[in-house]
């Protein structure tokens, strides 16, 4: 078993509860996105799983065992926490060689992961000459070093150029296909939606959701239909007559009908003989779902969050 199990995990720093009675499991064979705003407790949870911080209460195990009890931990769990962690005056190769030696990982693996991360050509350079993107790649290389069945990556796309973002995304998807357990934290919604199969969402140290990606979106965002007719006011009146509440978009754009399905709207319009120019289902996005969830949670109903949530919604509408 290579599950990550977090049970009733709590971590307090002084009076602050960074992680609050958190319980969830990360399953193998899929990429689990670990979502939450900065300060929600994602990094703290990862440090607790790695035994770096001691929980106030509760447990975190990997494959049923505490991380600190693992004999050669890098062969079982690979983690990327902070891309700045490699010492600037060491070369990338020396950094990885030191890690490999501690877990009796053959030195040949160092060259393999450097190659995989696209760092072979610069492996002999001191890390201080690396860009943030190259340091991220080095951090990912370190995580892959022991060919582990469990990977935990904290914000791996941070500071990466578009090409590297695609690289890390494809890598995570491949690792999951190979049957590994992959937990990836992020605060970027669109990015997470592009690689995650499953989501664990945190807010203020608490678990807000633990669902498959699509299910999460469906539970949070109502299905909507966008419809345009040659006679929009007749169409609006018709739909209102059927109990729908169509909303006219600015600049006399199409109508948006909340909580509706294309099959129903199309049938109603056809029966009434109203000509339809456009009819489309609107998929909710992870961003909308996330904002809907966090707006529901009591601790998020500050004016600032609500404002930014509606701003994001507006900008999305505008894009459509």
């Amino acid at each position: 078993m290579t599950r990550i199990d977090v049970h009733e995990l709590t971590k307090e720093y002084g009076a602050t509860r960074a992680v609050d009675r958190l319980t969830f499991a990360v399953e193998p064979g899929r990429v689990t996105g670990f979502l939450g705003p900065n300060g929600a407790g994602k990094s703290t949870t990862m440090r607790l799983v790695l035994g770096l911080d001691r929980p106030t209460s509760g447990t975190a195990t990997v494959g049923g065992r505490a991380y600190t009890a693992l004999d050669a931990p890098l062969r079982q769990v690979g983690a990327l926490l902070d891309p700045q962690a490699a010492h600037g005056s060491r070369t990338a190769r020396a950094h990885l060689l030191a890690l490999a030696a501690s877990n009796r990982i053959p030195a040949r693996r160092v060259d393999e992961v450097l190659d995989e991360a696209g760092l072979s050509a610069v492996a002999g350079r001191r890390v201080k000459s690396y860009s943030l993107g190259m340091r991220q790649r080095l951090g990912v290389a370190a995580a892959l070093l022991g060919d582990p069945a469990v990977l935990m990556l904290d914000e791996p796309s941070n500071g990466l150029d578009p090409e590297s973002i695609i690289w890390v995304r494809e890598l995570m998807r491949r690792l999951a296909r190979e049957g590994r357990t992959v937990l990836v934290s992020s605060h970027l919604m669109n990015e997470t939606a592009s690689f995650a199969d499953h989501l664990v969402v945190l807010g203020r140290g608490r678990l807000l959701a633990d669902l498959p990606l699509q299910e999460f979106i469906d539970t949070q965002v109502q299905p909507r239909v966008r419809v345009r007719s040659s006679d929009d006011s007749a169409l609006a009146a018709l739909l209102e007559g059927h109990g729908y509440r169509p909303v006219r978009e600015p600049d006399s754009g199409p109508l948006t009908v909340a909580d509706a399905r294309v099959a129903d709207i199309g049938r109603i319009a056809a029966r009434a003989g109203v000509p339809i120019l456009e009819l489309a289902a609107q998929e909710g996005t992870l961003e909308e779902a996330y904002l809907a969830l966090t707006a529901d949670a009591v601790e998020y109903t500050s004016a600032r969050t609500a404002d930014s949530a509606s701003a994001v919604r507006e900008s999305q509408e505008a894009r459509r």
Binding site: R47, L50, G51, L52, Y67, T68, L70, P73, L74, V77, A79, L81, D82, Q84, A85, A86, H87, L99, S102, N103, A142
Partner: peptide, 12 residues
């Protein structure tokens, strides 16, 4: 820069 975390993750 959190180098100790990398070290202790390798040698808990």
């Amino acid at each position: 820069n959190g180098a100790l975390r990398v070290s202790l993750a390798a040698v808990p």
